[in-house]
């Protein structure tokens, strides 16, 4: 099955915020909620400057920590993207803490992040941000093609940006947002190695089944034992009663 991905070309992004507002209006996000945050980056001192923008959003990790820690299955992977069933969210905020990119935020007690425009894409459209991007910094499509496009774009901007690189090919199992970086990831505050921690994934994968398993086991074992043990105890009480009765009779006889 094909997996899908976004292309985010930060060399091209000109910081116009069109994607931010298109996302808000297309998804009818309430005031105070946004899935994309654009921030200006500057390196160097006047007049020897370099600059650009970070276009911060859900990176749709293949090995998604948020999915790993989500207790209710509200966050899940589908088509290579990290989708969300808001109705299932318990508001536990584990995803907020587990995300290596600091993406999900709590709004009205519900975890909130980009769901890759699930409804739009399923209705045959393009994600709102991609559809409106005037600088062609965003694309959406099958991940293989997006990755190839990203690599081609990096090659084409090497003359302007010698440190240009693709980010997200392998990171966190491969990102669903393949980023064309003009410079090193740190410049736009992206973690160099956003791999999910064993403890984070292990918690859901090991500790929780263990908990359930051992609890169930103890219930089963004691359930069976209880029948026998109770009978034994009743037998013991009966014996005791008989002894007592026998004793009283004996005493009565005396």
């Amino acid at each position: 099955m094909a997996t899908y991905a976004f292309l985010l070309d930060l060399a091209r992004c000109i910081g116009c915020q069109a994607c931010v507002v298109a996302c808000k209006t297309g998804n009818e996000l309430p005031l105070g909620t946004k899935y994309i945050t654009i921030s200006e980056r500057t390196q160097g001192t006047f007049p020897n400057l370099q600059g650009g923008f970070q276009n911060h959003r859900c990176y749709h990790c293949t090995d998604a920590s948020c999915v790993a820690v989500c207790p209710t299955g509200a966050l899940f992977k589908e088509d290579g993207l990290t989708r969300m069933d808001r109705a299932k969210c318990s508001g536990c905020t584990y995803c907020v803490d587990a995300c290596p990119f600091g993406v999900p935020v709590m709004v009205d007690g519900i975890s909130t992040k980009c769901d890759a425009c699930t409804a739009v894409v399923k209705a045959g459209g393009q994600p709102w941000c991609v559809k409106t991007c005037p600088s062609h910094a965003l694309m959406y499509g099958e991940r293989d093609q997006i990755l190839a496009e990203a690599q081609a774009r990096v090659e084409s901007i090497k003359a302007r940006y010698p440190n240009a690189q693709v980010y997200g090919e392998k990171e966190a199992g491969g990102l669903g947002v393949v980023v064309v970086l003009p410079d090193s990831p740190e410049v736009v505050d992206l973690p160099v190695d956003p791999q999910p921690k064993l403890l984070v994934t292990g918690w859901q994968k090991a500790v929780q089944p263990l908990t359930l398993g051992l609890t169930s086991l103890s219930v089963i074992v004691t359930g069976i034992a209880a029948v026998i043990a109770r009978r034994n105890h009743m037998q013991e009480l009966k014996t005791l009663h008989q002894a007592e009765t026998a004793g009283s009779e004996k005493a009565g006889e005396e």
């Binding site: 109705a87 299932k88 969210c89 536990c92 007690g109 908990t211």
Partner: peptide
């Protein structure tokens, strides 16, 4: 109910929290 996914929907909305 957070650990047992078939009933985890009961946690939705944070009431169980």
């Amino acid at each position: 109910i957070l650990l047992w996914s078939p009933v985890s929907f009961l946690a939705a909305g944070g009431r169980s929290g």
